[in-house]
């Protein structure tokens, strides 16, 4: 892998370079919430792990599969694929956990059948990852998603006065070539020392004591532990926020809308949630998952176990979004805690 150094003094100059590859997006604070937003000037561009806001409420999937879009246009005689008009984007500021999330989406959407809508957006999205300072909710070190080796085009490691830049793809290499005079290929022993030190310091940020060991087996063995699942089911509001913010939740619903003239219409696809009551309901009214406990069990099976069968890893990437989002504190930490027979809970501030 090719590695470069770039001085922090030069980071703003990269805006003009990145703009040549597409719209530039970055997590910024809006109304108190961290959210991926398009930026239009170099003033807001940064790769700094302390300046970029932590944990955008909605992960990268927001850009790769929008919360809602038209898939088809139709009239009484013909269904046509809707034009997507997908812009090229350079998305700066994704952390390792979220890029692991995208890698899972990549596997999911391109295994067996390839989802054409995901593929189109994914191909037009350049991912520039950045290093981060984990907070008390992060547990990517426990899900082995704190280090990222693939899935990004460039990755910026914040080492104080400069960044170490890892090149992860041919497109990333194109960006380096475009901003050639800003990048220094000479990686000195001092730089290597700084990086090793960063690794050590970074590891010390983790305070989340979630114990992931054996969780996959426990998910299987405690599947019929009704007391455990009903404890959470009784609290659950079925609001679906956990699934909206989860980087690896992919479920969608599809609905047809008619234009006012009733002669044509559009098929609309939008994020769905397995927490919703009608998620497993079929025509005629039979519901395969009537209770909140059953629906929670499906979600946690998917996050903590099921992906192993499908793709070799569980699908939780340790981002902590469920912990900071759930209004009644049902989250991976608290479910794992109960699976382990403990009652300690992590409550969001």
């Amino acid at each position: 892998m090719r590695v470069y150094k770039i001085s922090k003094q030069d980071e703003k100059k990269l805006f003009k370079v990145l703009e040549k590859f597409g719209e530039v997006w970055l997590p910024v604070k809006k109304g108190g919430k961290c959210t991926f937003s398009r930026i239009y000037s170099e003033d807001r561009l940064t790769f700094s792990q302390t300046e970029i806001c932590n944990r955008p409420l909605l992960p990268l999937k927001k850009l790769l599969l929008p919360p809602e879009f038209n898939t088809l246009d139709f009239n009484a005689e013909r269904y046509n694929r809707a034009e997507q008009n997908v812009p090229s984007r350079v998305v700066v500021g994704s952390h390792a956990c979220d890029i692991h999330g995208v890698n899972i989406l990549d596997k999911f959407y391109t295994t067996d059948f390839i989802d054409p809508f995901y593929r189109e957006r994914r191909k037009k999205t350049i991912i520039i990852g950045t290093s981060c300072e984990p907070d008390e909710y992060c547990f990517c070190n426990k899900t082995n998603t704190n280090i990222i080796e693939e899935g990004y085009d460039l990755f910026f490691n914040d080492l104080g006065h400069y960044y170490l830049v890892w090149v992860g793809s041919s497109k990333g290499d194109d960006i380096i070539r475009e901003g050639d005079d800003l990048f220094d290929e000479n990686i000195t022993d001092k730089i290597i020392g700084d990086f090793i030190n960063w690794r050590k310091v970074n590891e010390n940020f983790f305070t989340n004591d979630i114990d992931f060991y054996g969780v996959t087996d426990l998910m299987e063995l405690k599947y019929n532990d009704n007391e455990l699942w009903e404890y959470f089911g009784d609290k659950c509001l079925s609001c679906g926020q956990c699934t909206m913010v989860c980087p690896t939740c992919t479920c969608f619903n599809v609905i047809d809308d008619l234009e006012v003239n009733k002669n044509e219409g559009h098929r609309r696809r939008y994020w769905d949630s397995c927490m919703f009551k009608d998620y497993s309901m079929v025509a005629g009214g039979h519901n395969f998952r009537k209770t909140r406990a059953e629906r929670l069990k499906l979600w946690y099976t998917h996050k903590l176990k099921a992906f192993i069968g499908q793709f070799g890893n569980p699908s939780c990437v340790g981002c902590g979004r469920c912990i900071v989002t759930c209004p009644v504190d049902i989250n991976v930490y608290n479910v794992v805690s109960r699976l382990k027979g403990q009652e300690k809970e992590l409550i969001r501030k």
């Binding site: 067996d112 969608f252 599809v254 079929v282 099976t301 099921a306």
Partner: peptide, 24 residues
């Protein structure tokens, strides 16, 4: 078996059971 399905190609999630999709 019958399940709710919105895609038929293992993407929409509704027919999932454990780690498999009924439609696949």
């Amino acid at each position: 078996l019958e399940r709710r399905m919105k895609c038929g190609v293992g993407k929409c999630g509704h027919c999932s059971i454990d780690y498999i999709y009924t439609c696949m």
